[in-house]
Nucleic acid binder design. Structure first.
Lengths: 299, 299
DNA sequence: GCCGTTCTGGAAATTATTTGCAGAACGCCT
DNA sequence: AGGCGTTCTGCAAATAATTTCCAGAACGGC
């Protein structure tokens, strides 16, 4: 790749390796920069010149020696590089430990962020793309899609239902296990049932998938446990990889992972039917817009 | 809190959320920047002015409106931010952020993972921890907590409602705007209303928060736009930093960011009441367990 | 010690950024 | 519709930052 890019990625390295061929005054500059890059970023060329007990001209020449067009460009690159390093550092000094009662609010936030991003990364990396494509194709072709989940998993199901509806598919969600069973039993071959369950052992969801299967529908399971009964029973199994924190107050990572899977599934579905999408999205947007006219209460 | 640092982390978010309060010419500038930040980084103020068919003065003023001392500082921050994002993209080995119709399923997954991860990281970094602590304390002390959200935001509200209920708090969620209004009006001083809305301009949600406020309840807003009317009206504002993909098929990042905020809030609440928690969680777990006895349909 | 080469900082020249200002555009009120 | 105040905009002047030029200083080789 073009040099410009490479330099920008590792300014400090460039500076270090340039030291041997620099003159005394320029070397002083290099050392100052390496010692505290973050400080230098905030300095104007004059400030840096003072800091190095030298002149602006020297700084400018230094920047050119290292391979930049001048101080302006160098400073920009330095800012990019330090920020990049900072980002990398941030990601790793997130203590991987579980959340405990002694944590500050800031710590809690970091840890949750870490766990949730981890869940997303691992889940998307571990997805069975073949199964996913099959599921997406089935949903695209279905006359109707039933979604089901209880407890925290109901949110994933609802979310997907909202999304599919938005692109003009007939998607249904029921929170009530009896209604869900009824609904599943009425599916027809070609229709799809998507069942969400973290453990994959929730009895209600299992029964729904069995009913859907019996009715001839394509069954899709979103679960954390590929060996669960739910997974065994489904045609397409989409596995989440969430390790729930010990502070298991609620399904945090698992729910995020499920939603991510839902998103990928949804986008795959939508991608296969571009004609339909464009229009449907716009129409639903307009509808909502129109529907929200009203009066403010404090007027 | 160190504003400088926060801004530097998410310049694009700042720009985006500043749009509402910008003038026409400044808005053009903002849009240009959002459209192709990498390009703008290489531009001098004159270049950017030309690109936006406006004057240098406008650019300079724009930078100040967004919260920087001037273009120099802004450009530096932009360089830092884009480089940071680039680093994150490298991690997911992908080249562009936005999803398009040509993407393979694997690519879609990477991109979604990237965007959602970014939303989580930026949101947790940008959280106002003071507001968060206040909200958590209020919820802990409330005799009742009302949660409200429509559309995609309803999921966040539901999620939080489930969690709070699990630790023994009286938490209510209503999807129906009329019921929500009724409910909000009946809150008492010391109670809490949590309102979730991405844009912060949804009329229904605005009215709910106004009603809750009038009833003397503590009001908490979860929104992406700190300058929105909703945010203005709330006692504690928790801001998400989600940049929705151009493939705006559904609120993916914004919803994830909201949930993350909800999680942090919940854990903060739970942390302050350990006695209550341990027991409550166990009892609710047992209850669910007992409630799920039944017969498998395929037996 | 002299000469040529390289290095350095002061200062001028250039370039970039910010600020002041006056006209234009807009909304508001009558 | 017309007048009035406010805000927005671009021009241009003022300022600030950076680059280039140049002359003197320092060093090394003869």
């Amino acid at each position: 790749m073009r040099k410009g890019r490479r330099v920008r990625d590792d300014v400090l390295g460039e500076v270090r390796s340039a030291i041997p061929r620099l003159s005394t005054a320029e070397r002083r500059v290099a050392e100052q920069i390496l010692e505290d890059p973050e400080r230098v970023v905030d300095l104007t060329i004059t400030g840096l010149a003072e800091l190095c007990s030298s002149s602006q001209a020297t700084i400018a020449r230094f920047c050119q020696s290292v391979g930049f067009s001048g101080y302006r460009e160098f400073r920009l690159a330095l800012a990019a590089a330090t920020s990049r390093e900072q980002a990398a550092r941030d990601r790793f000094d997130l203590t991987t430990g579980d959340i405990d009662f002694a944590d500050s609010v800031e710590n809690i936030a970091s840890k949750i962020a870490y766990q949730e991003t981890l869940a997303i990364e691992q889940t998307t990396k571990g997805l069975d793309f073949a199964a996913l494509s099959r599921a997406a194709a089935a949903i695209r072709g279905a006359a109707r899609v039933d979604l089901y989940g209880v407890g925290a998993s109901s949110l994933t199901a609802q979310d997907l239902q909202q999304k599919l509806t938005r692109v003009g598919l007939a998607a249904f969600f029921s929170a009530d296990p009896h209604l869900a069973l009824t609904s599943a039993a009425l599916l027809r071959p070609g229709d799809v049932a998507v069942v969400v369950s973290h453990t994959g052992e929730t009895l209600e969801t299992l029964n729904v998938i069995l009913a859907a299967r019996q009715a001839g529908a394509v069954t899709v399971a979103i679960t954390n446990y590929p060996a669960s009964e739910l997974a065994e029973a489904a045609d397409c199994v989409l596995v989440t990889h969430a390790r729930e924190s010990r502070y298991r107050s609620g399904a945090m990572s698992s729910r995020i992972a499920q939603l991510t899977v839902g998103d990928v599934l949804f986008v795959s579905v939508a991608q296969g039917m571009p004609e339909r999408m464009a229009g449907a999205l716009e129409r639903t947007y307009d509808a909502v817009k129109r529907g929200t006219r009203g009066r403010r209460l404090d007027a």
